[in-house]
């Protein structure tokens, strides 16, 4: 008789995983960062405390802290090695970052939330 844990593990389904971008968590006191394209990655939006601050309207009342989530989406097919190159390039440009989160599609569906 399998345990509940064994049964649960057995239900895992194989999914096709495709790298499509990177969420970069940038620390800066200089306001909303601006980026040129970095290799095959293009900045799509920037949020602060979960609220989109670029592109588009930003309330002057909005509280912003010094930690920005910057979503870079791939403009062509990319591999993990492209992320390493991207991180090196970003660091060389002087950006200080706390974390990077690879963004994957699972069976063609985004495995990451959109920004408000």
């Amino acid at each position: 008789m399998p345990t509940f844990t064994e049964t649960a593990k057995a239900t895992k389904k194989k999914k096709e995983i495709k790298l499509v971008g990177i969420d970069m968590y940038i620390i800066t006191d200089k306001g909303i960062p601006k980026f040129d394209d970095i290799g095959p990655f293009k900045c799509e939006f920037i949020s602060n405390r979960g609220t989109k601050v670029w592109p588009g309207f930003v309330s002057p009342d909005l509280l912003q802290v010094n930690w920005y989530r910057c979503r870079f989406m791939a403009t062509k097919d990319v591999q993990d090695a492209d992320v390493n190159t991207f991180l090196d390039a970003l660091t060389k440009k002087g950006w200080w970052w706390s974390a990077a989160q690879k963004l994957w599609n699972y069976d063609g569906e985004a495995g990451f939330s959109k920004a408000y």
Binding site: D23, S47, T51, Q101, K114
Partner: peptide, 14 residues
């Protein structure tokens, strides 16, 4: 405006 409502969610593996 904060906490788990910051809309930062990821499938970090399948």
């Amino acid at each position: 405006t904060e906490d788990c409502y910051a809309a930062i969610e990821h499938m970090v593996s399948d």
